[in-house]
């Protein structure tokens, strides 16, 4: 019976309205005006700060990029670079070690601090195949441009998972990845040790095709820019991502 229902509800809601009305306590027009004024003032301040940042940040970044490239790397720039390497941390610069180089930086497109984000890091392009040691010589890597591949052997203290049944040679002496596949622990019967490989200084980024390996005193981080896969290795730990 809709009419009866309607009567019941009309009556119930009318009572509800009458009973609830005394409990409504408006803040008032004055309070509303004050809130709106405060918000306008806050918005104006926020916009001013934003405008200041928009002007100041590029100026500061430009000043950093134009600064002394032989000086210590800026902490901000180092942090930015390490966003792709979660297990590494911003580091203080180590003295650059000079060693017989298979690829003289100048000959292979080396660029120091080419952008604010890379300030403090030296970037260089590797030839088709490039092997290198870290200054500690605990890590040795070989990058192959054609297969977008990299393997790093590490003199490590890692705790390794059990070797897969298919691995009948040395297990977990390093990490490798290539052809767009995810990085994995190596199962290899050989070693990358090669005295002809160059010792690259810390704070170096080596690019080979889509690969980018960053050498710091916290370890080596390699990233395949096309697949997003990569790894970080150091004496103490490894991370695959």
């Amino acid at each position: 019976m809709p009419d009866f229902d309607d009567q019941i509800l009309t009556s119930a809601f009318a009572e509800f309205r009458d009973e609830a009305a005394p409990y409504v306590r408006p803040d008032g027009v004055a309070a509303t005006s004050a809130t709106v004024r405060t918000r306008k003032r806050n918005r104006a301040v926020a916009l001013s700060v934003l405008a200041l940042l928009v002007i100041a940040v590029p100026v500061a970044a430009g000043a950093t990029a134009d600064g002394d490239s032989h000086g210590p790397p800026s902490q901000v720039a180092a942090s930015t670079e390490f966003t792709t390497a979660p297990t590494t941390s911003p580091t203080s610069p180590a003295p650059a070690q000079t060693s017989p180089s298979a690829i003289p930086p100048a000959a292979h497109g080396s660029s120091a601090a080419s952008s604010p984000a890379n300030a403090g890091l030296t970037t260089r392009e590797a030839p088709d195949e490039f092997g290198f040691y870290t200054p500690s010589r605990r890590i040795v890597c070989l990058m192959t441009a054609e297969a977008n591949a990299v393997r790093c052997d590490v003199n490590h203290d890692w705790e390794l998972p059990a070797a897969p049944e298919s691995c009948h040679v040395d297990w977990g002496n390093g990490v490798s990845m290539g052809n767009g596949k995810k990085a994995q622990l190596t199962c290899a019967g050989d070693s990358l040790q090669n005295e002809s490989f160059e010792v690259v200084p810390y704070q170096t980024v080596i690019k080979s095709n889509d690969l980018k390996c960053t050498v710091t005193d916290a370890g080596v981080t390699c990233l395949d820019l096309s697949s997003g896969h990569g790894f970080t290795v150091s004496r103490a730990k490894y991370k695959l991502f």
Binding site: V24, R25, P26, D27, A31, T32, S33, T35, V36, R39, K40
Partner: peptide, 13 residues
């Protein structure tokens, strides 16, 4: 009351 007050603040703005 909160949501109604907020609606009136937006109306006044």
């Amino acid at each position: 009351q909160d949501v109604v007050q907020e609606a009136f603040c937006r109306a006044l703005a």
